[in-house]
Every structure is written in C-alpha cells, then in structure tokens.
C-alpha cells in the first residue's frame, strides 16, 4: 500500500472512531427523585477527548471535500481549547493545515496538545477574554482570505447538524434500549449552540413535549465552554435556535466543581461544564415532573488538572 493510501485509511479509521459514545447512568438522581432516571453521554470517549470531535469532524471533512483547502489554504478558527484539539488532531490526520486563535488562559493541557498535533497557534491576551480571540480570528480571515478558510464554529451549520444526525440519534437509540422510552427532558448548555440546537431539535421532533433546560454559568470566572446568555448583551451564537430552550438555570462554578467531585465517586472524571449539567439535571429532577432525563458529559477532568480544580481545598 502506498504511504498516502495508508494515511487515508488511517484518517478514515480515526474519523470512524468519533461518536457512538457510551450512555452512562447517573444514580445520584434517586436521591432527589426515586422515580426518575438520569443518563449522560460520555463524550470523553471520543479520540480528541471531548464532544467537539463530532462537529469538527463534520465541518472539516465537508470543507475538505468542497476543496476549501486548495493551494495550501489553512483552516482557521477560534477556540477556548476543546474544539482546537479536535481541529488540530483531525487536521494532522487529514493533512489539513490548521491555525487556531486561542486565549492565553486556555488550560496548559489544551495548548500542549494542540501544539503536539502541529497546529499553528495564535495566542491572544487572556485579560481580554474569548471575545478578543474571536475578533482576532475574524481579522485574520478578513485580511488573508487567500491564506485561510474560516470555519467559524459559531455559524457553521455542519456544527448543529452533526449533533442532530448523530448525537441525538444515538441518544434516542440508547435511551430506548435502556428504558424503552424517548427522553422527556434534555439538559445542556450553550457554547457555540451546536449541541443544544442539534440535539434538542431532533428530540423535539421525536417527542414534542421534551423539556429543554440550558445551564447558565455565572459571568466570572465562568465555566469553560459555556456562555452566560442570561445577561443583557451576552452573546447569542448565530446557529443557536433559542426557541428550543424552555428554561435557563443559573449554575455557579462552585456548584459545577462540587458536582464533578461527587461524580468521581461514581467513577466519572469530567470537566466543569459536565458538572454544571448534572447539577442542573438534578435540580430539574427534584421537581418530579420528568422521568427520563438526558445530558452530556462533554470532556474529561484530566484536561483541567493544571487549573488546580482537583487539588484538595487545603492545597489551593
């Protein structure tokens, strides 16, 4: 087999490894509602370690098939880390050069892995936050259209479609296999809006009364990957279908981290957005209106070691 043929096969196998994640059950729900079941997709099982592999795989492969990277053009996007890892990983596998604009306060684990896959990093001033990185990506795309193809995960419809066609379909199949029902509640959050829009849209088609709850983080220090939305002037990503959201529930970082710690006792090691979702799901379950709740465990807790998140309180 020629080396380039072998590489193509290897990339195909990596792409095929994305998705089909396990559906785990979180028994903590019995403490607040013995009649309810809480399920969660374990997205750290993706090769890039997070849910972002799903939309990035679809956006990147479709752009490649459309010839966006002809003449050495690079994929460009902004990311606070997980999407950046997926872009870098799949870009390396598919031979697509990648440039990522990332705030300098993205965790060390993220930055190191992005660099390891050979992606070009443009680091922006952390004090200016993620908005500055986004503006910088726009500026680079505008000024160098011959050099970059701007993927823009905030508006690219292949983002939400990946979750509509795959993530949601897996949820419906796996939950049906577990309890013979369609979920009556979905708990998520909004980063780019892709997961919530794609999953909620498909679940609502399957069951019109499904309750969609969005966990809303405090504005500072915030929860990695989640946008506040609830404050006037906060971002509304272009692809987010806000009409799908029935309820917005505030969750603090402290609540999210406390839930992550509880989940370790179940053998689950996840990041703060996952903790926020489970906290919100238990709050919903406590009302005893929903029997089959589904949420997402977006990434692995190992990606946050350098933040001190897992250190005992006395050492922080």
């Amino acid at each position: 087999m020629k080396p380039e043929t072998f590489a193509a096969h290897s990339a195909e196998r990596l792409l095929a490894a994305i998705g089909h994640t396990p559906l785990v059950e979180i028994p903590l729900v019995a403490e607040v509602n013995p009649g309810a079941r809480l399920f969660a997709k374990l997205e750290a099982a993706n090769p890039g370690g997070s849910i972002k592999d799903r939309p990035v795989a679809r956006m990147l492969t479709r752009a490649r098939a459309a010839g966006r990277f002809a003449n050495g053009r690079r994929l460009l996007d902004s990311s606070s880390g997980n999407a950046g890892i997926s872009y870098a990983m799949l870009g390396a596998a598919l031979g697509v050069p990648v440039t990522l604009v990332v705030p300098g306060n993205a965790s060390r684990e993220r930055l190191d892995r992005i660099r390891a896959h050979g992606a070009e990093l443009v680091i922006t001033d952390p004090i200016e936050g993620y908005d500055f990185a986004l503006r910088e990506a726009h500026r680079l795309a505008d000024e160098h259209p011959e050099r970059y193809w701007y993927c823009d995960q905030y508006s690219n419809p292949d983002n939400w479609r990946a979750h509509y066609e795959d993530t949601a379909a897996e949820i419906l199949e796996q939950v049906a296999a577990a309890v013979g029902q369609i979920p009556d509640a979905f708990v998520g959050g909004v980063g780019t809006g892709g997961t919530l829009t794609g999953v909620a849209r498909r679940l609502r088609e399957a069951r019109t009364e499904v309750h969609v709850l969005a966990a809303i983080p405090e504005t500072f220090p915030g929860i990695e990957g989640l946008k506040p939305l609830g404050q006037p002037g906060d971002i509304v990503p272009a692809l987010l279908d806000e009409s799908l959201i029935d309820e917005r529930l505030p969750v603090t970082l402290d609540q999210a981290v406390a839930m992550c710690r509880r989940l370790t006792g179940l053998g689950l090691f996840v990041g703060p957005s996952s903790g926020a979702f489970v906290h919100a799901a238990l709050t919903l379950a406590r009302r005893r209106k929903h029997r089959t709740i589904v949420t997402m465990l977006n990434d692995t807790g190992e990606r946050y070691v350098s933040t001190g998140m897992w250190e005992p309180a006395t050492q922080r």
């Binding site: 606070s80 880390g81 990332v102 705030p103 306060n105 993205a106 965790s107 952390p126 004090i127 936050g129 993620y130 908005d131 990185a133 986004l134 503006r135 726009h138 823009d152 905030y154 508006s155 983080p217 504005t219 500072f220 220090p221 915030g222 929860i223 990695e224 990957g225 989640l226 946008k227 506040p228 002037g233 906060d234 971002i235 509304v236 990503p237 272009a238 946050y304 933040t307 001190g308």
Partner: peptide, 22 residues
C-alpha cells in the same frame, strides 16, 4: 496586577456582532 480566569470561557457584549457573522 492582572485578574485572569484560569481557563477561557464566558462571553461578552463585544462577541455578539462577530459571532453572528457568517
């Protein structure tokens, strides 16, 4: 002295326009 969140996240008013761009 700089006050910096440990990981990137959250969003602010200035993102609205740019995030809606195609």
């Amino acid at each position: 002295i700089s006050i910096v969140p440990a990981v990137a996240g959250g969003a602010h008013k200035s993102q609205r326009t740019s995030a809606r761009r195609a």
